[in-house]
Design a protein around this nucleic acid. Structure first.
Lengths: 135, 135
DNA sequence: AATAATGTTTACGTTAAGGTCAAGTTTTTT
DNA sequence: AAAAAACTTGACCTTAACGTAAACATTATT
């Protein structure tokens, strides 16, 4: 299922196609998220189709609010098991579940926060109108 | 209504009574949030009852998720109009309304985010079980 | 060949809200 | 008076996820 002779792309092209900057890609490599890519003639980074998929996967998780640190945990497994989805998915599901719980918590917090603010706002408004009358 | 000879407290006592550190209080002064407090004998900071109320007010807004930068806007008015609540409250209400809107937006985002994650999670789970069977 | 475009590494800058020394001064307690 | 406690300023550290700039090398286009 995997084309072994996939066309290689360079960092600029890859970045542009995904709407990110080259710095981001280098940064992901820097923190071990992307793994070392092959160098063309020893210097220029080139990315295989697999690399591209991996990067897309990372970005997808990012849009879900998963931190790079959490994604790293997945990457470790990714590196160890070399794309064995049977092993990566349980951990992924664990992280996703964990994240759903976090999101739920955040929403609850925001909800009660909102109540507080609204109440406070009402008190302020009342205070204003009362003072306005008396003056 | 304001006791002109209110007892003065020092920074350590004030911090402890509010459950914050002295660094926080100095920091608020540093960024202009607290206004210069009187110095006892030119060196030690002392806080009046008004100062304490102001600090409590700041902390209250903070628990509502309002940033120090936003609180600063209120402080400016506070400084200019010297505790004239008729002038400070409209701006406060504006900021509160603004914040309620932000909170609503965040909640909406989190809500759709949650949906995404859950969907993704389901797809992953299905993928897992299918693969499990075939193997 | 000269210029432009793209690539490379290194390293400091950014934001928020303080934390954490360090070194010195003042005040309080013994 | 001497020691302990509390105060002072100043300055660097922390987290996340890159942005930005410098200085240089390689590749592509004119």
């Amino acid at each position: 299922m995997n084309n072994p002779v996939s066309k290689l792309v360079q960092i600029g092209e890859l970045a542009k196609s995904l709407g990110i900057t080259t710095r981001t890609i280098r940064y992901y490599e820097e923190i071990g998220l992307m793994g070392k890519s092959e160098r063309l003639g020893g210097s220029t980074r080139t990315y295989t189709n697999d690399d591209v998929l991996r990067l897309k996967f990372i970005l997808k998780l990012k849009t879900m609010g998963i931190s790079l640190k959490e994604i790293e945990q997945l990457s470790d497994i990714f590196d160890i098991n070399e794309r064995d989805f049977n092993k990566i998915t349980p951990k992924l599901i664990e992280i996703l579940d964990n994240h759903i719980a976090k999101v739920d918590e955040k929403m609850a917090n925001l909800s009660s926060l909102r109540k507080d603010i609204v109440e406070y706002r009402i008190r302020m408004t009342e205070f204003l109108t009362h003072n306005g009358k008396e003056k």
